[in-house]
Nucleic acid binder design. Structure first.
Lengths: 360, 360
DNA sequence: GTGAAAGCGCTAACAG
DNA sequence: CTGTTAGCGCTTTCAC
């Protein structure tokens, strides 16, 4: 077979039909694997198509069935707290990309800086049909464009729980923090600090509730002084710990997001505290640094790649009308390393670490 | 059965033409600002379109003029050295997005994990015309798919200099390192270490040459022992410095990429060296951490957002046949902070020192 | 100047 | 089962 790529001329379905000696519609149906075509002709057509290097033109197909194969990833950059993430978006996109590939879709970036722009982008996506639906990150309490989405029934899947009844994919923010805090308690700690995120983030609030619940469940009093908050970055986490650590006694910290991890290490080092002997640590969210830092960090792996995968998968099904608008929670795994006191050797306990390829 | 949206039927150009009392072709020409239409009818049409919330369907337009409005960002994830970047992709995408918005384009993600996949993605982009061209990151020496690109004249712009004669946008890797090293020399340092990147990266090699050139220019002997190399991440940079620092004397380090910065700080701290008194530092590439870390880091701002902007702008012009295939170098600015010894107060001196002008 | 009509490549009716 | 045909929404000749 000659896999010669014919330089300039575009191979259309007509060419395939001609070469295969069938009608265009037959070719079309064969290529789309319709049951009404005999497997003989189906094979013939498929072979000819492969030989000719035929690929259906996206525009023509989109024009016919009224929707494109592009799915949007809508990111409000103003919510920069997560955008400086060590690997969140990489993993997320890796997962989305995998789902998109499976469905023959492609991810289009919809980066917006304001509510007006968000509304414009969604409206245009709906009108131009260049993007058939979107995964929207970082839902906040005020999202006036939700009305627009509803009005035109634009398919969306949120990453994180949105204020209204839209489909979303998320971790169990309450549950993961509860589990993390419980793990500290299992290690015998009573005075456990919680380093949370900004108050206006919905996930931050849920994670704090999980922390409280774990303490209350064990009859440990929740102390205001032990609840700290910082922006999701190294520097702010460092400052918060430096500010608060002197005001109260504690033997463990539950760190609410991985971006804060490095700052906590730096602060404890500057304060002359050793990990995990003086202060034990656990962090919500796993990353490369957690594995390589010394001592290695015990984390809850939130399976962010799965999050992206499921979100995209759900969106594509939604677009294809294959699914009703429900939501999904991604599980988390505890990865025991050194910072909590579980292991003394470096590298940690990989027993619960699922093998995951290509974390982008 | 698909559920039909009751109120918001799709607004087509026909609706606009009808409402405006003109023919479809007139409406089309008016909307596309053709000179053959009287400004009176042009205004009428434009107003009606706005009132109706008309947006041209992407697929129909793409079908007619044989290309879509999507531009690809092709990222080979196997080259993960830069993908763990603290902010490179964020800035890059921000710039690309700005350019795309200006041209009415949208960025599509083309994430590939192997050469075969790269070839497949490019071929499909060309065949399906869902993506009209691509910005390709991380060119390496072996890129067999370049043949495919050439064969079908698929428009591409590389980020970084590719092996063959393709258009690209890049920083002056040689120049920036030379400037950085010169700055250390100006501070009186003679024994300057260079922490480079993996040997197989084209940019790494150029940056090392810049370092050598600066030393040679001042008659300072280049010492093998002072040339270090590590992967572009915190951990590997840390280890490399820990391994090499004891074997040789040095009073300054020129750090080749921002991802290595935190590792160098950590290593120097563990080695009991103070910055900048024992060891002065300068880093190629600016980032948030450089500003916030203590002492703050003197850097060369590579204007990564401009890089993305120019790359996308160039690609779009290429797609539209408005530009020949030339390349472009983005200038860099020296940002003087504390780590080099320029400033004692925090915050740094923003006075800018250009390396090289971009030709745009 | 403006309006009718011919496709762009594909899918899905409807005949054969 | 297969072939013919009518559009999807838009741009762009061509006549008027």
């Amino acid at each position: 077979m000659n896999k010669k790529v014919s330089g300039s001329k575009n191979v259309t379905i007509k060419d395939v039909a001609n070469k295969a000696g069938v009608a265009v519609s037959t070719a079309s149906m064969a290529l789309n694997n319709k049951p009404t075509i005999s497997s003989d002709t189906k094979n013939t057509v498929l072979n000819v198509a492969r030989d000719l290097g035929y690929h259906p033109t996206a525009a023509a197909r989109a024009l016919v069935d009224g929707k494109s194969s592009n799915v949007g990833l809508l990111i409000p950059v103003k919510v920069d707290s997560l955008f400086f993430s060590t690997g969140f978006f990489q993993k997320l996109i890796a997962g989305m990309n995998r789902a998109a590939n499976e469905g023959g879709n492609m991810i289009s970036l919809q980066i917006v800086e304001s509510r007006e722009e968000t509304e414009r982008v969604i409206t245009e996506a709906y009108r131009t049909k260049n993007v058939s639906g979107s995964i929207i990150t970082h839902p906040t309490q005020e999202m006036p464009y939700l009305d627009v989405i509803n009005e035109v029934s634009y398919p969306v899947v949120f990453l994180g729980e949105p204020p209204r009844n839209f489909p979303y994919v998320d971790n169990d923010n309450y549950g993961v923090t509860k589990l993390a805090t419980e793990h500290m308690i299992e290690h015998g700690h009573k005075r456990i600090a919680f380093l949370g995120g900004p108050k206006n983030l919905i996930a931050s609030e849920a994670r704090e509730r999980g922390y409280r619940a774990a303490l209350e469940q064990e009859g440990i009093e929740v102390q205001r002084r032990l609840i700290w908050r910082s922006r999701h970055d190294e520097q702010m986490a460092y400052q918060e710990v430096m500010n608060e650590a002197g005001k109260v006694e504690f033997s463990a910290i539950c760190i609410s997001v991985e971006e804060q991890m490095a700052g906590v290490y730096r602060a404890l080092r500057d304060l002359g505290k050793s990990i995990p002997d003086d202060v034990a640590l656990i962090t919500i969210g796993d990353c490369q640094l957690a594995e390589h830092i010394n001592p290695s960090m015990t984390t809850l792996d939130l399976h962010t790649e799965d999050l992206g995968y499921l979100a995209a998968k759900k969106l594509i099904r939604l677009i294809n009308g294959e699914e009703r608008q429900d939501s999904e929670i991604v599980s988390a795994d505890l990865i025991r390393r050194q910072s909590c006191g579980c292991n003394t050797i470096n590298g940690g306990d990989k027993s619960k670490l699922k093998v995951r390829n290509s974390s982008v």
